[in-house]
């Protein structure tokens, strides 16, 4: 798409990625920690803010693009992934980040997840998973545990939660990680690694809702519960082991990289570019395009 390959690397401090907008989140929200981890990870990567597109859907966490100096797109509920894919295919030189909540990614927008994975488009998708709908004030979410009582499950939820980690692994995601703002350095590292990964990277962040979340899901609880996968001796190139560990979602808080495909499939956005390049010489000049319809 005739965009010159512009991928600048320069020195930027985390503050360079911070916009003037004040977050609307409740004091103590886990998303603050995710936001500063993103600033720090982006600083580590070094792409200037204007070469980054940051897309989200709807929800508390989906406000996040506005708090950065990247080109942001706070879109509609559940549709961040399709929009991000359009951006990446239109201009593969951009660094494209996607963020949202568990409702956005695994309920209303859940149908898009398998497809972005099988295309392996080079996006980094950060889900702030808090097992509750915060923006609409405390309803059941797709990752809420069975039995949870909320304003829309007065007598307790009757359904099992989605397991986001197992879900994306089963669909064939090549990079799957989990973090928590209770471990900021760890979170910064996996976001940075996710961005550097050549292809679609999925990062589930256990980001507590301080207002509607359960007491045992708060940052303080995370600090004692979290177990780093590396300390367990997990080999991130072992997909089956990653799936076995992912089964513990909801019971254990593992942090780090579950799976990093040592031999990832080609990136869709690269294939698109190659095809464009290969086919360009066969183009009829546009002012003669109707000649395609000459009768034979």
């Amino acid at each position: 798409m005739n965009t010159a390959a512009v991928q600048t690397l320069t020195h930027h401090t985390p503050k360079d990625y911070q916009s003037d907008l004040k977050p609307i989140w409740c004091p103590g929200c886990g998303d603050f920690g995710v936001l500063s981890s993103i600033y720090r990870a982006l600083s580590g990567i070094g792409r200037p803010p204007h070469e980054i597109a940051f897309v989200s859907g709807i929800g508390c966490s989906s406000r996040i693009p506005g708090y950065t100096t990247a080109y942001g797109f706070n879109s509609v509920h559940g549709r961040a992934l399709p929009i991000a894919q359009g951006i990446k295919l239109a201009n593969p030189d951009l660094l494209v980040l996607v963020a949202g909540g568990d409702g956005d990614g695994f309920s209303i927008g859940g149908g898009h997840v398998p497809h972005v994975i099988r295309r392996n488009i080079d996006l980094t998708y950060i889900v702030m998973d808090n097992q509750i709908y915060g923006l609409t004030k405390g309803q059941l979410s797709p990752t809420s545990p069975r039995g949870l009582k909320t304003v829309t499950s007065t007598y307790g939820s009757l359904e099992d939660p989605v397991n986001p980690l197992l879900y994306v692994l089963a669909y064939g995601a090549s990079f799957v990680a989990q973090g928590t703002p209770a471990d900021m350095p760890g979170l910064v590292t996996i976001i940075e690694e996710g961005i550097r990964f050549p292809g679609f990277a999925f990062i589930n962040v256990q980001s507590p809702c301080v207002t509607f979340g359960e007491p045992d899901q708060q940052l303080k609880a995370h600090k004692t519960a979290m177990k780093s996968l590396s300390s367990l001796g997990h080999d991130p190139s072992d997909r089956l082991q990653a799936m076995a560990l992912a089964q513990d979602y909801g019971r254990e808080l593992y942090t780090g990289i579950f799976y990093r495909n040592p031999d990832p499939p080609p990136k869709y956005n690269d294939l698109v570019r190659e095809r464009q390049k290969a086919m360009a010489p066969t183009a009829l000049p546009k002012d003669r395009i109707l000649e395609m319809f000459l009768p034979e």
Partner: peptide, 19 residues
């Protein structure tokens, strides 16, 4: 795309990206 919504969504994204 995987559905009609994703199809138009990707087009909206491409337009945002300048195409």
């Amino acid at each position: 795309a995987e559905d009609e919504i994703a199809g138009v969504g990707a087009a909206v994204g491409a337009s945002f990206a300048g195409k």
